[in-house]
């Protein structure tokens, strides 16, 4: 499946079906992130049930602490 993540085309395995599993795939499921799917922002509690499909446009913003 091909996704557009933060503007880049990214190939991910087809077994990834939800936002949660996508974050897990990238190893960032423990991080505090905000996810936008096709220009609609997702509540954090909905990552598990929100499904993703081919060509979806996803923005992932990671909260970092440094400064």
């Amino acid at each position: 499946m091909e996704l557009i993540i933060n503007g880049d085309k990214v190939e991910v395995p087809n077994k990834i079906t939800t936002v949660s599993s996508l974050l897990q795939h990238f190893g960032i499921n423990q991080k505090v992130v905000i996810v936008e799917l096709n220009q609609s922002i997702l509540e954090k509690g909905s990552h598990q049930e929100t499904t993703i499909s081919d060509r979806d446009k996803i923005e992932i913003v990671n909260f970092v602490g440094g400064g």
Binding site: N6, G7, I34, E36, I41, E43, E59, I60, V61, N62
Partner: peptide, 20 residues
């Protein structure tokens, strides 16, 4: 908007977060 970027990876993101 909440703005984030990665200068090395050439990424830039600005998303509306009012709904949160």
């Amino acid at each position: 908007k909440l703005v984030s970027f990665d200068l090395w990876k050439n990424h830039h993101t600005a998303i509306g977060v009012d709904k949160l």
